[in-house]
Design a protein around this nucleic acid. Structure first.
Length: 714
RNA sequence: GGGCAAUUAGCUCAGCUGGUUAGAGCGUUACAUUGACAUUGUAAAGGUCGGAGGUUCGAGUCCCCCAUUGCCCACCA
């Protein structure tokens, strides 16, 4: 009986293996495609969705890492020049919110801090957090090329993002607009539509006597900003009033209001008459544009009523609403009050109700860009997995509104522009200097302090991560697969397609693979407030990264959510142990057979075993090529455990102890070669343990499993 | 209001282009075993594949309708 290598002590202990193996890979340089053997020719590229550099990895990240590493390792073994570019996202608003909470705990506030001081503090915090995030990525076994790692605030990234803005400006695709934006009164910034969350709210619908009309509104406190009353032009009740100015009474006096006819007014809702407050409602703002109405702001940036509201000035919205209603009632102007449930947009971070506010901001003209993206998908240049996401993508691209890219926060990439605070003109920083007179009104131009929406920069990520516009790595573009969570189908995927096409004329990736959300064991969304968050690193410590990866990938399908059940991970830890022990058995029963031993004469039964293995190779390979990792993994699991271990090894036990020398030789050869083949195929799924087992298999020249060719039929 | 997904064994879920008696893990039950196995093996019980209809020689799989759950989108005040 041969010696079992000391490394293969029982049971398998991931902690004794994983760190050492990861270092072995890093030292080999094979994560970098430039160091791969010359037989690796055709590029295969994945850009890692850069995790936020403001904390640790969560379970969703672990699934991302597992899937992308499986893809990368598989393609590397298939002989591709596999490149997986890691990154870290400064995550603009997200990180600033995290940091503000920290400041709050310390009794400090960002509003009392100097811009630069705040920026530097957040940078220090982010760079520190980034290290933990990277350590987590490594712990999960990611075979990404750290030498190419990019941070979304690297100097060349910043300058290139700013250059894209200038290009868009010159191409007339970005403009400074003055219109209602989604304003968060707590965070003091505007937000894009995807950064708001609509929640059901139970409010009151107030019917207010308004001159000759009764109008229905949920916001009586905005009455001081009213400039018109709108009715449907076909409404027989009100038709004759259109064009007239009527006098309406409110607690601070009387207002002359123009009656306008607009087809958007629903005659069946409320009373069919609508009060128009252009400064505090998206819809009303648009009507003010069509009907050339004035705009009166009555609510300030902190959500308090201003001097236009007379005695209500200084009150917060909720307080003012109560008071105004009381006073209207006292005047006999409230006809009735109804309960009313409706959806209200809120800040997705603090749940504060969004206050629509008219502000000068930078907008990207979406229609022409979205058309580029939609066309490329319709032409089949990008494939979605699962394919129903194509429909969702197209719906989104066919219904865009202009994108507000200005954020009033310091943590981000500054918009390279000059603005006129007097007339709101916006110009490129390359056209004028700070302080030069505004070409329109003569006031001195000021430097724009707003930063970009973080999706403006991450939308360019596939290019930026490859060093664009530097040419050296652009041979890896377009990339092959963009793998990310299905929640990013709106936020991120379309912007990458748009910028990729806009900047290079080529789609950024050929396949979009979207995984579902990782939920808790009851299928509920993980959240800190519910206390059901499961840390992938805790699971790795407990069961090993290999077991976690198997547990995340097997039994879950693209696009569908999955429940993270600890017992399932435990089951795959047992599987790792099975691989370990099967290897121990094989190594102690193969005499002096090595992987270089030529194939001996095989019996018909041996041929049958090989044929079965060949079928497994073929099937697994087909699944891998078609992104069916859950099926590939499951088949490997079953082949290894229930065919190789339970049937083949058991059968071989008696043959090894027999007297027939030919049978013994073929048994030894078969055991070693089936073990080696399955170890190779399992490597993308369970990289650590398979590399460790590989290192113990007898062969004349030592090599790393990470670059072994993917098996073909023996 | 619109869209998407899911509904299969007690639990968590697979089932790819429709094809023999519907699968896995965990759990349950019985037996065996110190074996390469901080356990494992053998076997068993357990499902009218949400409901109704249709296409087909054949449907968990395709089509229509319905129900339930979840998610996403939406500027009717």
């Amino acid at each position: 009986m041969a010696e079992i290598p000391e490394k293969l002590n029982k049971p398998y202990e991931p902690a004794l293996t994983e760190g050492r193996i990861y270092k072995l890979w890093e030292d080999s340089g094979f994560f970098n495609p430039d160091n791969l053997p010359t037989r690796h020719k055709e590029p295969f590229t994945i850009i890692m969705p850069p995790p936020n550099a403001n904390g640790r990895l969560h379970a969703g990240h672990a699934l991302t890492i597992a899937l992308e590493d499986i893809l990368t390792r598989y393609q590397r073994m298939q002989g591709k020049r596999a490149l997986w570019v890691p990154g870290a996202d400064h995550a603009g608003f997200e990180t600033q919110v995290v940091y503000e909470k920290k400041l709050e705990k310390e009794g400090r506030s960002r509003f009392k801090m100097d811009r630069k001081e705040l920026y530097d503090e957040i940078m220090a915090f982010t760079l520190e957090s980034k290290k933990h995030m990277e350590a987590d990525v490594k712990a999960l076994g990611a075979s990404c090329d750290w030498s190419r790692e990019k941070f979304t605030l690297d100097p060349n990234v910043v300058s290139e993002v700013q250059e894209t803005f200038r290009k868009l400006y010159r191409d007339n695709l970005v403009y400074r607009g003055y219109r209602t934006v989604n304003w968060c009164t707590k965070h003091q910034t505007s937000l894009s539509d995807v950064e708001t969350e609509t929640v059901e709210k139970n409010d009151k619908l107030y019917y207010i006597k308004y001159g000759p009309f009764v109008v229905a509104t949920v916001r009586p406190e905005t009455i001081f900003g009213d400039v018109a009353i709108a009715v449907n032009p076909t409404d027989e009740r009100y038709k004759s009033f259109i064009g007239q100015t009527v006098s309406v009474q409110h607690p601070e006096g009387a207002l002359p209001l123009l009656v306008i006819g607009d087809a958007e007014v629903d005659p069946l809702f409320g009373t069919g008459a609508l009060k128009i407050t252009p400064s505090h409602d998206h819809n009303d703002f648009r009507m003010s544009e069509t009907h050339k109405l004035p705009r009166v702001e009555v609510i300030d940036q902190f959500g308090k009523l201003n001097e236009k509201a007379g005695k209500y000035a200084g009150m917060k919205i909720a307080e003012a609403r109560t008071k105004v209603v009381e006073d209207l009632q006292a005047l006999g102007l409230i006809e009735k009050i109804e309960d009313y449930a409706h959806a209200v947009p809120t800040c997705y971070k603090c749940n504060t109700t969004i206050e629509p506010r008219v502000m000068p901001q930078w907008f990207v003209k979406m229609a022409p860009l979205a058309k580029l993206a939609a066309d490329s998908v319709r032409e089949g240049k990008i494939k979605f997995i699962p394919d129903n996401f194509e429909k969702i993508f197209l719906y989104w691209m066919d219904n865009t509104i202009d994108w507000n890219i200005s954020r009033q926060i310091v943590w981000g990439i500054q918009i390279p522009a000059l603005i006129c605070k007097s007339c709101n003109l916006g110009a490129l920083d390359t056209e004028h200097k700070e302080g030069t007179p505004c070409p329109t009104c003569g006031a001195p131009l000021a430097i724009e302090t707003d930063t970009f929406d973080t999706w403006f920069s991450s939308g360019q990520w596939p290019l930026l991560a490859l060093g664009y516009p530097e040419k050296s790595d652009l041979s890896f573009y377009p990339t092959d697969v963009m793998e990310t969570g299905r929640d990013l189908i709106f936020k991120w995927i379309p912007r990458m397609v748009i910028f990729g096409l806009y900047l290079t004329g080529k789609v950024p990736f050929r396949t979009v693979y979207l995984h579902g959300m990782v939920n808790d064991k009851h299928g509920k969304k993980m959240s800190k407030s519910k206390g059901n968050v499961v840390s992938p690193i805790d699971l790795t410590d407990k069961f090993g990264a290999d077991a976690l990866r198997m547990g995340l990938v097997i039994g879950s399908t693209p696009g569908n959510d999955l429940s993270l059940v600890e017992d399932k991970i435990k089951g795959y830890k047992h599987f790792c142990n099975k691989m370990w022990n099967a290897s121990r058995f094989v190594l102690s029963n193969i005499g002096d057979t090595t992987l270089d031993t030529p194939r001996p004469k095989l019996s018909p039964r041996d041929e049958e075993i090989l044929k079965e293995l060949g079928a497994a190779i073929k099937s697994v390979t087909l699944h891998m090529d078609n992104f069916r990792f859950h099926l590939a993994g499951e088949e490997l699991y079953h082949y290894f455990w229930h065919t190789f271990a339970d049937i083949i090894i058991e059968e071989m036990k008696t043959r090894i102890q027999g007297e027939d020398e030919d049978s013994k030789r073929s048994t030894e050869w078969l055991l070693l070669n089936i073990l080696s083949t399955t170890t190779k195929m399992l490597h993308p799924f369970t990289p650590f343990i398979t590399e460790e087992i590989w290192s113990t298999l007898p062969k004349t020249t030592s090599s790393l499993l990470i670059i072994e060719p993917w098996p073909k039929q023996l």
